[in-house]
């Protein structure tokens, strides 16, 4: 086994000069939590695609209705009723303004301009209505999710941080609330307050904050006995300081992830409510009420359901992809 090697002698070695100072040096650039998460998110292609579509749809929802010369309720039953979508350059996809029998609806009505998403039975431009509806759906979802977040974080945080009897009572209250079917709760709520954005938002918040409260409670329970919190307490920190400096920053990642999963849920729930007729009252539109209108004319004018359904689906998928990506980015250990 032994290899005789006469070539190497002691005087070929010399001591390496490493001072203690040198060995403690960290050469890598300092990367904070948020930057690290962003770098990891950027590597996740699905999440980036999701983010791209969300940004695109948000921009369109803000800009598109403003740029069109039609309002969401500009009717014209004489000249431009039920025009099929016509998008220049995409005629080969079927967006050529011809109905199922091959008749050009634009020629029949003598309309020169293009309606990209077509018009409905009242002659309203669906392009404008879809984007305005997206805007309303997004606003409802966003406000409802932020409301969920505020109530859920406060409730879950207090419950976990003070613990004991407080926690016990607060958790029993949550269990009772969670036991009531939320659809019943929401429908009663809307019947009581009447339709409209405010009541939908309130109805969504009333049943939506429980999930957030549970997640925050779990996280705070885990964190509050960590040694860094004990260390802060031995230094004499107030509860307020511990909550804001130690607990919230460490739960923030989880809060954002939960928020990103809540938003598509809220969008879908709003669409569902509008679809069963409890949503935004006419003439205003949301993705749900547009879908409902399209559904009624599905066999005659299928394009009316196509666009709102498409936007709704893309929005939901994108939010879910982004939320998935954020979860992996904030907490790489959770990835399987």
């Amino acid at each position: 086994m032994s290899v005789v090697n006469d070539n190497i002698t002691l005087d070929m070695f010399q001591p390496a000069q490493i001072s203690a100072d040198e060995s403690d040096r960290i050469s890598a650039p300092s990367i904070g939590f948020w930057k690290d998460a962003w770098l990891r998110l950027r590597k996740n292609k699905a999440a980036v695609v999701g983010l791209f579509f969300i940004v695109l749809i948000v921009i369109m929802a803000i800009v598109a209705p403003m740029l069109s010369k039609y309002g969401i309720d500009d009717q014209d039953v004489v000249n431009r009723q039920n025009l099929y979508p016509r998008i220049p350059g995409l005629e080969w996809l079927g967006f050529d303004g011809k109905d199922s029998t091959g008749m050009d609806t634009y020629e029949l009505n003598g309309v020169k301009q293009n309606f990209w998403f077509g018009t409905d039975e009242l002659g309203r431009d669906i392009w404008v209505r879809v984007w305005a509806g997206t805007r309303i759906s997004l606003i409802i979802a966003l406000i409802a999710s932020i409301g969920d977040c505020l109530i859920g974080v406060a409730y879950g945080g207090i419950s976990a941080y003070y613990g004991g009897l407080v926690d016990n009572v607060m958790q029993r209250v949550i269990e009772i609330l969670a036991g009531i079917p939320n659809l019943v709760l929401i429908i009663l709520f809307i019947l009581w307050l009447g339709g409209g954005m405010t009541s939908i938002i309130l109805a969504l918040i009333i049943s939506g904050w429980i999930g957030m409260a549970r997640i925050v409670r779990g996280q705070v329970l885990k964190l509050k006995n960590q040694e860094f919190v004990l260390a802060s307490r031995t230094l004499g920190s107030s509860d307020q300081r511990i909550i804001w400096k130690h607990l919230i920053p460490n739960v923030l990642g989880q809060i954002i992830i939960t928020l990103m999963f809540t938003i598509p849920g809220a969008i879908f729930f709003e669409a569902f409510l509008s679809f069963i007729g409890l949503g935004i009252p006419a003439p205003a539109a949301s993705l749900g009420s547009l879908n409902q209108a399209g559904f009624e004319n599905l066999q005659i004018y299928p394009y009316m359901a196509l666009f709102p359904a498409l936007i709704l689906s893309i929005l939901m998928i994108s939010f879910n992809l982004l939320a998935d990506g954020l979860r992996d980015a904030f907490d790489p250990r959770m990835r399987k």
């Binding site: 939590f33 960590q226 920053p249």
Partner: peptide, 8 residues
Amino acid sequence: YASLNPRM
């Protein structure tokens, strides 16, 4: 590993 707040 647990005694220092990772966010600070």
